[in-house]
Design a protein around this nucleic acid. Structure first.
Lengths: 116, 116
DNA sequence: GCTAAATAGAACGGTTCCGAAACGATTGCG
DNA sequence: CGCAATCGTTTCGGAACCGTTCTATTTAGC
């Protein structure tokens, strides 16, 4: 575990990274979309619409729409589950992995710049 | 400066905090609104609509609307500048300070929980 | 004083997102 | 087989937000 963040550092970090995301305007993802994206890329698959909706505490159509948007951006892809064809599994993409990786780099860079 | 975050830790932190924000659903602020809120509470006043728009690289009406929403939520307040009555200065509120403080606590808590 | 510049906000049309409800497709169970 | 349950999606009306454009107010310069 890293050394503890102080409140001013924590907020400064959040501000700086959010600021970069808005300023660069690449993603323009809502908080929900960001939560879905990171859940898909950080947690163990498989990820279904229902599972994501339950985990995030939102409705299924909200997940469907988030996946629509992120699919349009190439950040995730959807695939029918062959075993149970009612299910849709959300899969990672190269572009999505790159975007997540860039976000990680951004957080780390801003974290390094934090005042002591 | 805290010890450096590793990529997996940085992304895990971002995921966990975003997840909490979505799950608890208290704020429901967009990335822009979050950037405005944290800028107002972290950077040196005074904050004008024009200044915030220039800093974030968005249009003035976008800032006006963000301030409308956040004012409705009681997170900020607006006042005409007495010196130059064309300007509106954005001021902090008790509720806003509390919300920002809670966000800081959330980030710190999630940061503490990060795997080594 | 009078005009020009600056500032915030309002109006407008288009886009996106929301939750609730309804719907088709699929599966499991009796 | 038949019927209920499950799953993802679509539809619907409403709300929020976007950028552009325009307006009202105020200030600065001549």
């Amino acid at each position: 575990m890293p050394t503890s963040l102080r409140p001013s550092q924590a907020l400064r970090l959040w501000h700086d990274v959010t600021f970069d995301l808005v300023r660069d305007g690449e993603h323009d993802l809502s908080a929900r979309q960001m939560a879905v994206l990171l859940t898909v890329y950080l947690e163990m698959p498989p990820h279904t619409v229902r599972g994501l909706a339950a985990k995030l505490g939102v409705t299924k159509p909200a997940i469907t729409r988030a996946l629509d948007t992120m699919g349009r951006l190439g950040l995730v892809s959807r695939h029918r589950d062959a075993a149970d064809r009612r299910n849709v599994v959300v899969q990672r993409t190269v572009a999505g992995a790159l975007a997540v990786e860039r976000l990680g780099d951004l957080i780390i860079a801003r974290h390094k710049e934090l005042p002591p």
